[in-house]
Design a protein around this nucleic acid. Structure first.
Ligand SMILES: [Zn+2]
Ligand SMILES: [Zn+2]
Ligand SMILES: [Zn+2]
Ligand SMILES: [Zn+2]
Lengths: 132, 132
DNA sequence: CTTACAAATGTTATATTATTACATAATGTT
DNA sequence: AACATTATGTAATAATATAACATTTGTAAG
């Protein structure tokens, strides 16, 4: 059972913005958009983002320095994330593929490392951009 | 057959530095280290880094904003990269696992996207840090 | 050799992303 | 109430990355 996190005021404002957005949002674009709600400083945004990432409500797209709402209810606390990124239109989607996540969560090699988390980003052309 | 790239002066200086380093290097740490060789500006570093990434001699560790020399001669032009990252000591290694790369290179889902590139980062504790 | 083109360099300024430090307030627990 | 934990507010600054423009070097054709 997932622990229920009650978002604080700033966390809720920022999560709602990201959740409604059709595309990943960057921190300073978020800042600009929430200034009318009384969030004035970068740090207020980054603190909320950190917390939201920590509890798995959003993910950071590392190659883009941008944030997207989790679209995968079974994504346990951001420990196993995979995304598809269109290099033409920059559309990003979270991949929800049980076989893939099982394969990667169980991945082991001879390095002696225990992996407890991964992040995977696929790049290519989305359906739309392919047909142009 | 791989195309042979003759590195330019700056590219060579910066590649040699990264190649000798036991850990991923950040752009401004590189800049600091090559100033005695006449490279004075961030842009000179970033341009060399961009080129080295493009031709597959180095990779960017996205979650760390740092660069590491390719340790995998069969890594075709940075189109299929996987790394292990220790969250304690920050040791980073390139994973060279044929099964993994085949699995990911052939990955398809129902999104209609054609993937031509991926980057995977595993996180955990390395052997050393596990036993502490 | 010289013309032409592509790639790389040098330099200055600036944009973008993220954190440190410190003070205060709200929330949850005993 | 007392205490700990989490969140907020604010200012300053650090770290990462790119834009714009002028110049030079490398390469290949004619
Ligand atoms: Zn998710
Ligand atoms: Zn697209
Ligand atoms: Zn490689
Ligand atoms: Zn370690």
């Amino acid at each position: 059972m997932e622990k229920q996190h009650n978002l604080s005021k700033n966390q809720k404002i920022i999560f709602d913005l990201i959740d409604k957005s059709p595309e990943p949002l960057k921190a300073y674009s978020i800042l600009f958009n929430v200034q009318k709600k009384g969030i004035n400083a970068p740090l207020q945004v980054y603190r909320a983002l950190d917390k939201l990432v920590e509890i798995g409500k959003i993910h950071k797209i590392e190659s883009r320095n941008a944030f997207i709402a989790c679209q995968n209810s079974s994504c346990q606390i951001s420990k196993a994330t995979a995304f598809s990124i269109c290099e033409s239109c920059e559309k990003v989607s979270e991949i929800n593929n049980l076989k893939l996540s099982k394969y990667l969560s169980n991945f082991e090699d001879d390095s002696g490392m225990r992996y407890n988390k991964y992040n995977l980003e696929f790049f290519g052309l989305c359906k739309k951009c392919k047909s142009k």
